[in-house]
Nucleic acid binder design. Structure first.
Length: 643
RNA sequence: GCCACCAUAGCUCAGUUGGCAGAGCAACUGAUUCGUAAUCAGUAGGUCGUGGGUUCAAAUCCCGCUGGUGGCUCCA
């Protein structure tokens, strides 16, 4: 009996029943058969060795596509689990999926793994690869599965089996001396996993719930070629070099102090001037866009936070109150209640909507110590916050404006790649379902009007409303959440906000919270990593370093310095008693975009020598031309190409 | 908060089985006055994160705390 197989190009071919995808691939070409990782039959991923019983459309996945990687890494995790079981027979296995970059497996082991264990496991994995086991798929009944894993003492697998739906086909994969409950599919055999490395290990809660037992997780990565593995490891090293914490120290941009407290940022002068530039730009653009800039207090009475609901919903992230005249005051975790106070300070007409108040507002939130991370996750940070109160029919156009405004900012800082997410109603929420639906539709509509692609993050909205998040991608393809545009049903209600409509009746305004850069601290961290400290001229803390060749030219150099400063350029001079090479090295290390070198030649010809950071000597020019060039570069926010 | 690891000079790091705390760079002083990524010589710099314990003796071993790193959880 024959079956009919349809290929991606639409062509069809008959094959004997029970032919395997592997055999079909071999019929096409040997190279394909060797490279292919798994097959997809009528949209379902299957093993290459799985007999095909019926007609269907087939598709092959190689390591180069996402699904191929998935299977490759998933199989790698099984090999790792097998190695661990061989070395530590008492260990219980939990789950071992593929992830975005590689794979992990969770183990229940009394004594946590050590660095040496990782090496031993790697060696054992190599042995398993060399022994070349087949990934053998077996369908078993629920009882058989339970019996099997009970006999192996694999409690976590039993828990998983018990939770599988009644009609689910239960499959196990046998890998020589190792059996695992698994939906599959898998590689044909272990020798397909050519190059791998175990990267790190850590604790991880069973099923990600901190009430559960903490298991031991090992992360790894694997590739079909040595080069891919090397490239990956190189990329990790590259990321390390870009680490904002490292560069922040080298360039003296910011610091944390033990005596002050964890997660509390100090912007050093060099970072401070950059923040000033960013804030200045931000404020000007906000005025242009019709925002009113405000400043609000850092603390407020408990009644404020009771009204806002923060003491009900957000207390865990708030610091303990302080007593002032017998009344509890809380340090603010958000700016919104203050903005609402100002909105409510007088009667609002529909004519003055949308009302937009913006603030670079510093908030304090309790983050668990283990969550803190450089500038990216801190306990005190400044949101580039704004609140928009508008009428329901203004909502869509306001969100469209916001998306445009946000992308303009991100682009100005050199970010033009991003992912956009629309987060919908979570399990715990306030407000009416119909309002949620309407608001979510409005956000969708705004995204569509803007012509932006987005993904829907189901159930990931905040309890008070749906939201749009923009995650930018940096030079290393890493994602960073910056922009968030959040709809709020909760606060207008709680604070009884109103505006008088055309009908002379009071109406409830719609409210949007938004932060474009997110927090200045995190955004600064992202900027540092994006540029590896080689900032565009408009942002660089020192834009030009003036370097006299010897003491004889210091006076002349100081004249140049003053002219630069008069032209609003951030310039410094290096008058150290050192050779040019040394001063240039210092300026290069400080990643100063331009260096002006002056010696006797320049004094004689009344010109300057210009050197560009990372590029080298650009030759001579006259100071006036150079100043106008730099001024233009600053004004245009030119993104450096020296990277 | 949880699991693992880490903390030595301003920075990067060495310090053996517990036995007198080290290097390079930076700083300071002097010499040198120099042409595009490190001139030479000298000087100074430490309660080994912090509190306790073990020991004749602790940077080293044990416990607590603080801070940090990689994850888990959570998020701007």
């Amino acid at each position: 009996m024959n079956i009919k197989i349809t290929f991606p190009d639409g062509s069809q071919k008959e094959f004997p029943k029970d032919i395997t995808p592997l055999e079909i691939a071999q019929g096409i070409s040997k190279g394909l058969a060797k490279e292919v990782v798994c097959a997809q039959l009528d949209g379902k991923l299957i093993d290459m060795t799985r007999p095909i019983e019926n007609d269907g459309a087939i598709l092959f996945h190689k390591f180069t596509d996402e699904k191929g990687k998935d299977v490759y890494w998933h199989s790698s995790s099984h090999i790792m689990a097998q190695a661990v079981k061989r070395l530590f027979p008492d260990v219980k296995v939990a789950i071992g999926p593929s992830i975005e970059q590689g794979f992990y497996y969770d183990f229940d082991k009394e004594i946590p793994f050590t660095e040496e264990d990782l090496h031993l496991i790697e060696e054992e994995m190599q042995r398993i690869v060399d022994e070349n086991f087949f990934f053998e798929r077996k369908v078993v009944s629920r009882d058989e599965a339970l019996e099997l894993f009970e006999s192996l003492g694999e409690d976590y697998k039993i828990e998983l089996i018990k939770e599988l739906p009644e009609d689910e086909t239960i499959t196990i994969y046998v890998l020589g001396d190792f059996v695992d409950l698994c939906r599959g599919p898998h590689l044909q055999s272990t020798d397909k996993v050519k190059f791998f490395k175990l990267l790190k290990f850590s604790g991880a809660y069973w099923r990600g719930d901190e009430k559960n037992k903490m298991l031991q997780r090992i992360y790894g990565i694997s590739f079909p070629s040595r080069k891919e593995l090397d490239d990956y490891l190189k990329k990790l090293e590259e990321a390390e070099k870009r680490d904002h914490r490292k560069i922040g120290k080298e360039l003296d941009l910011f610091g944390f102090y033990e005596d002050v407290g964890a997660g509390l940022v100090h912007w050093h002068p060099k970072g401070g001037v950059m923040r000033d530039v960013i804030e200045d730009f931000w404020k000007k653009e906000h005025y242009k866009a019709g925002y009113q800039i405000v400043y609000t207090p850092h603390i407020g009475k408990s009644i404020l936070w009771e009204t806002s609901g923060h003491l009900d919903f957000y207390k865990d992230s708030m610091y303990a109150p302080m007593k002032i005249d017998e009344i509890d005051y809380y340090i603010k975790p958000m700016n919104c209640p203050f903005h609402i106070m100002m909105y409510k300070s007088k009667l609002r007409s529909y004519r003055e909507l949308p009302y937009k108040s913006a603030e670079l507002g510093t908030v304090y939130r309790y983050e668990r110590s283990g969550a803190l991370h450089g500038l990216m996750r801190v306990r005190g940070f400044t949101q580039d916050d704004a609140h928009i109160m508008c009428t329901p029919d203004q909502l869509v156009s306001e969100v469209v404006k916001l998306l445009d405004f946000s992308l303009f900012f991100l682009k100005s800082f050199g970010f033009d790649r991003y992912d956009i997410f629309l987060s919908t109603k979570p399990d715990k929420y306030v407000g009416k379902d119909i309002d949620w639906e309407r608001a979510t539709e409005s956000l969708k509509e705004a995204l569509e009007i803007s012509g932006l692609e987005y993904k829907v993050d189901s159930g990931e909205g905040v309890f008070y409303g749906p939201k749009i998040d923009i995650k930018i991608k940096d030079a290393l393809d890493r994602s960073w959440q910056c922009t968030t545009i959040q709809f709020d049903f909760n606060l207008p209600e709680r604070f009884d906000m109103t505006y008088i409509g055309e009908d002379n009746e009071a109406h409830r305004p719609y409210m949007i919270h938004r932060a474009l850069l997110g927090s200045l601290e995190r955004f600064f961290g992202v900027l540092i990593e994006q540029y590896m400290g080689n900032f565009p001229v408009w942002l660089a803390p020192v834009q030009i370093q003036v370097i006299p060749i010897s003491e004889h030219q210091v006076e002349y150099a100081k004249g140049i310095l003053q002219q630069l400063r008069d032209a609003d350029i951030r310039a410094d001079i290096d008058v150290q008693n050192e050779k040019v090479g040394y001063k240039i090295r210092e300026a290069e290390k400080q990643k100063i975009p331009y260096m002006i070198v002056v010696g006797n030649k320049e004094i004689e010809n009344n010109n300057i020598s210009v050197r560009r950071h990372l590029k080298g000597d650009l030759g001579t020019t006259n100071l006036k031309d150079f100043i106008s060039l730099i001024t233009k570069e600053i004004k245009n926010k030119t993104i450096s190409t020296t990277d």
